[in-house]
């Protein structure tokens, strides 16, 4: 009797995860349906975000936050991928054995720091440096992208490192015995062997970067205009939601749900793709 209850409760808990996921999708869709019916797919190509008179109607399009999200993520990925790979290579192939543990822990601590701290630090200490070097007002796409890169590097390098560690020693030793240099071993043995997991980790980090809110909220400038320059302020989906969701009403609120649905669907798609194709767990 207790055993049966225990088993049923465990099954219920497992199914609950599916229920929550389905719930998120359907609730977002229902609340977004006004906006979806009003704007349809034009939502993706419209750049106006203007409430009507007395909060009645208005025209809302997601182009600017969508572009802002994609561009800040792109900048972050371009910077983060090589550095994360470098760190993973350093930790698996280069570092002295006594150095591996402390450096890994340090990098993982970087991942544990709450994102709001990155935002604060970025706003007060990093943005002025970006302004000095690249001009602009300090906050904008570039600053957001760089800090976003710093945030996803530890995550990406941790998974990549684990993947590289699974390469059998015999394979590497055979290559060394043939006279290969360390770089050749990494390029021709380690990388091909751990390729799928590395790609998976990159896509996973991409999914994270798309949805990151707080660090970007401090740094992207939070204004709904298309950026002309890389240092220009703009906004992203999570940031627009974070700043304006609670005050929005009617059609604007519904459009916010539409944005949330788009963000959720995209990151769900990207992360599932990474999980099912590259990082599948048995």
């Amino acid at each position: 009797m207790v055993g049966k209850l225990f088993k049923d409760f465990s099954l219920f808990s497992a199914v609950l995860i599916l229920i929550i996921l389905a719930g998120i999708f359907s609730i977002l869709y229902v609340y977004a349906s006004d906006s979806i019916h009003q704007f349809g797919f034009d939502f993706f190509t419209t750049k106006t975000w203007v409430p009507g008179e007395d909060d009645d109607g208005g025209v809302f399009g997601g182009l600017i936050p969508i572009v802002g999200t994609l561009l800040s993520t792109l900048i972050a990925m371009v910077l983060a991928v090589p550095i994360a790979m470098g760190i993973a290579i350093f930790l698996t192939e280069v570092a002295f054995p006594w150095l591996i543990k402390p450096v890994s822990i340090a990098i993982e601590l970087l991942a544990a720091i709450p994102s709001i701290i990155y935002g604060m630090w970025g706003l007060f200490y990093f943005a002025p440096i970006v302004q000095e070097l690249f001009g602009g007002s300090g906050v904008g796409l570039l600053t957001a992208g760089i800090v976003l890169a710093i945030m996803i590097i530890p995550f990406m390098s941790a998974i990549t490192k684990d993947a590289m560690n699974t390469v059998p020693g015999v394979l590497k030793e055979s290559a060394y015995a043939m006279g290969a240099t360390k770089y050749e071993v990494i390029k021709d043995v380690v990388m091909p062997y751990s390729k799928t997991a590395i790609i998976g980790s990159v896509i996973l980090a991409l999914g994270r970067a798309l949805g990151e809110t707080m660090a970007v909220a401090f740094l992207i400038g939070s204004i709904v205009t298309l950026p002309g320059l890389i240092t220009d302020p703009t906004t992203s989906i999570p940031v627009l939601l974070a700043n304006n969701f609670a005050e929005a009403q009617d059609l604007e609120l519904s459009s916010m749900y539409y944005l949330a649905l788009i963000l959720f669907a995209v990151s769900f798609g990207i992360i599932s793709f990474a999980k099912f194709y590259f990082l599948r767990r048995k």
Binding site: I17, L18, I20, R208, G211, F245, S272, R281
Partner: peptide, 23 residues
């Protein structure tokens, strides 16, 4: 469940906020 739970782990936290606002 195993794979979707992993996917949910990386879901944007702001979207979970929006969901809870609705429910």
């Amino acid at each position: 469940v195993r794979n979707l739970s992993d996917v949910m782990m990386s879901a944007p936290s702001i979207v979970i906020g929006v969901f809870v606002y609705a429910i």
